[in-house]
């Protein structure tokens, strides 16, 4: 029984999609991630350090500007390639909506909300390699 070339191509494409989806979602996010963000219309680049713990689709851990100032992660979820969580540092609430750009990088949007204002920023995080 012969398989048509067109059918073969479709099967390969399907496998590629499945594999890429699996690789995008299967990467455990647990570990340290660092990066920066600059609020649109803001002055400064703000450092970020996260200690993430992934349990299936649940994301917990902490984040903040450095290791000494960490805030608990709230509402952390991982669905498909989308990582969402919140941090409340005080007057400001940080809502992250990230995507896994590579095995060791997360990119996405950040919404900052206070009583009165709402700001946005682009965020990029990279996994901190352990020594």
């Amino acid at each position: 029984m012969r398989t048509s070339p067109r059918k073969t191509i479709w099967v390969v494409i399907l496998f590629a999609i499945i594999l890429s989806t699996i690789s995008a979602t299967a990467g455990d996010l647990s570990g340290k991630w660092s990066g920066t963000f600059k609020v649109n219309g803001g002055d400064h680049t703000v450092p970020q350090l996260f200690v993430l713990k992934q349990q299936g689709e649940l994301l917990t851990g902490s984040g903040g500007p450095n290791a000494g100032e960490q805030y608990p992660i709230e509402q952390g979820t991982i669905a498909a390639n989308r990582i969402r969580f919140e941090l409340t540092t005080g007057e400001w609430k940080f809502t992250y909506d990230l995507r896994q750009a590579g095995t060791d990088t997360l990119d996405g949007d950040l919404k900052l909300q206070s009583v009165g204002e709402e700001r946005t920023a682009k965020v990029s995080l990279a996994r901190v390699k352990s020594d």
């Binding site: 219309g41 400001w92 609430k93 909300q113 206070s114 009583v115 009165g116 204002e117 709402e118």
Partner: peptide
């Protein structure tokens, strides 16, 4: 309770700063 989000005064501040 005052929830987070834009307000009139926040809008004025945002106008003034950016």
């Amino acid at each position: 309770l005052r929830t987070r989000g834009p307000t009139v005064l926040g809008f004025v501040r945002a106008l003034h700063t950016r």
